[in-house]
């Protein structure tokens, strides 16, 4: 559709958006072609002259050095982008899906349905994320899917509130009355007439959701409740920390740290650039 093409163009027109899109695309490429790019198997312990290559500083052999267990840091960083990408995008899509639907129903129906859903949102706002995640992971076990579920289960709250407020003003607009006059059902008004008008806002929250969820996954992994079968940046930091290497081996800590920061900032920047598309008032000020 022409609108989306135009939006992408506007995002790329903005230097921040350009930077964000470029970095995220690079991470995506890294994640997809990880097996081809990685110099070593990230889980395999490396040996030099028959001896475990423990905490080797960067060299021609290991470009970013090795870990406490003698694994290649570069390969781990590359494969780590997969978790960031999977968790980031899936959780973002789930939480936006939940948030948009709750906001839409609450805003359109009003009355008791609205009160009920909004109190639910308030409760979601009241729950602190980390303790809640610990509890849930402890119950269902650490896996990447459980982490995605935990994140989307709690983070829909902001999206729901924002979408609801948009729906509240949209439903008073005459074109909704026009749809009613033509005989459209409530469900049709909600999903055919109102939803397309709040979608730009939902997409904005997907971009922001990517940033939040990646950051959340990193925190959970750093605290040691990440998926033990997958390497993520947060988990790399966790091992660096518990093995005590964090104090000496900067090459072990910096690469995953920088990757997390870069990934999150890029997602925010895309969000920021996209917000200017959604909200033309911001656009004017910048030009």
């Amino acid at each position: 559709m022409g609108v989306w093409k135009r939006n992408l163009k506007l995002i790329l027109h903005n230097p921040m958006g350009m930077f964000g899109v470029a970095t995220l695309s690079t991470f995506a490429l890294l994640a997809i072609f990880a097996p081809l790019i990685m110099p070593y198997d990230p889980m395999k312990c490396q040996y030099i002259d028959g001896e475990l290559a423990r905490l080797q500083p960067p060299s021609m052999h290991f470009l970013l050095g090795t870990t406490h267990f003698g694994r290649d840091v570069l390969s781990q960083v590359i494969i780590g982008s997969r978790v960031a990408l999977i968790v980031g995008s899936l959780a973002a899509i789930f939480l936006t899906f939940i948030g948009t639907n709750i906001g839409l129903v609450a805003g359109y129906c009003g009355g008791r349905v609205d009160s009920l859903l909004m109190r639910l949102t308030d409760i979601a706002f009241g729950i602190p994320f980390i303790p809640f995640a610990f509890l849930l992971i402890a119950l269902v076990g650490p896996s990447i899917w459980n982490i995605i579920i935990v994140i989307s289960f709690l983070m829909w709250r902001t999206t729901a509130r924002v979408i609801r407020s948009q729906v509240l003003s949209l439903k008073e607009r005459p074109f909704i009355t026009a749809a009613k006059v033509s005989g459209a059902s409530h469900l049709r008004i909600m999903y055919v007439h109102i939803l397309p008008n709040v979608l730009p806002m939902s997409f904005l929250y997907i971009a922001l959701g990517i940033a939040w969820s990646t950051l959340s996954e990193a925190s959970l992994s750093f605290l040691g409740i990440g998926d033990p079968r997958m390497i993520s940046w947060g988990q790399m930091l966790y091992y660096a920390f518990i093995t005590g290497s964090a104090r000496t081996a900067w090459w072990y800590v910096l690469p995953p740290g920088i990757c997390i920061a870069l990934f999150v900032i890029s997602a925010f920047m895309v969000g920021q650039a996209y917000e200017e598309v959604v909200n033309p008032r911001l656009r004017k000020r910048n030009s």
Partner: peptide, 11 residues
């Protein structure tokens, strides 16, 4: 309606 802009779905 009175306002022909507001009464058309912009999408």
């Amino acid at each position: 309606f009175q306002d022909p802009y507001e009464s058309l779905n912009p999408r």
